[in-house]
Write a protein that binds this DNA or RNA. Structure first.
Lengths: 117, 117
DNA sequence: CTGTATCCAGCCGGATACTG
DNA sequence: CAGTATCCGGCTGGATACAG
């Protein structure tokens, strides 16, 4: 985990510096849902651009939140999984989900949502 | 609560569209800590720029997460408080805080942290 | 299919000056 | 002090083309 230049030592601020944008946690959400391949991540309804996805996956790897396993046959094809550290973002995503459901009209979770409880 | 153009109807995605940046939740954090005046919000160690703070407060007001009470004597001077809807972001901030504390080195919460439990 | 690279418009946000 | 306005460089991210 990096602790380079930071605005403060507040854990909220630091986390936001790392993950506080409109795409990163969405990728984490999809990985929590079990998606593993690049194409699967692209297919989500939010339609992330492929270059953005590449960049986010790389950053998540650097942060050791995601682990990439290259395919043995196709050098280009890999699978992505959350590390245990990455999985520990589950409660964050869940809290966001709960807030959104309660406060934003017409939001709904996917039927297969593994975060449901 | 707006439900204008959105990338999807996922509550995580919608919440991220509204609050997913590096500053908005930091303002909410400070309001949760009890700060009420513009100057207090400026004083936080992250040193938000005043124009950014103005813009974020305005947006939070539009979202009905923050309520501004103008001063009766000084037209320019007001106080800001979270609405109940805004306060309901507490669990989100707390989940982020917990994750940061556990995963980012040398992070620490302010002594007066009302989110502590 | 799995990515990477590039172009580029627009937004974000830091610095700063300014008004009441 | 409380807030607004403006300038402007740099980053974000959409579109698209391309390579293995």
């Amino acid at each position: 985990m990096p602790s380079g230049s930071r605005r403060s030592d507040c854990p909220v601020s630091c986390t936001l510096e790392l993950l506080g944008d409109r795409w990163t946690l969405l990728v984490v959400r999809d990985l929590l849902l079990g998606k593993q391949r690049f194409g699967e991540l692209l297919e989500s309804p939010e339609a992330i651009a492929s270059n953005i996805l590449t960049e986010r996956l790389r950053r998540l790897e650097e942060l050791e939140l995601v682990e990439r396993t290259p395919s043995e046959t196709h050098g280009t094809r890999g699978t992505y999984r959350l590390t245990s550290r990455g999985k520990s973002l589950g409660p964050v995503i869940k809290a966001i989900k709960i807030w959104g459901l309660a406060n934003i009209p017409d939001t709904a979770t996917a039927a297969a949502d593994v975060l449901r409880k």
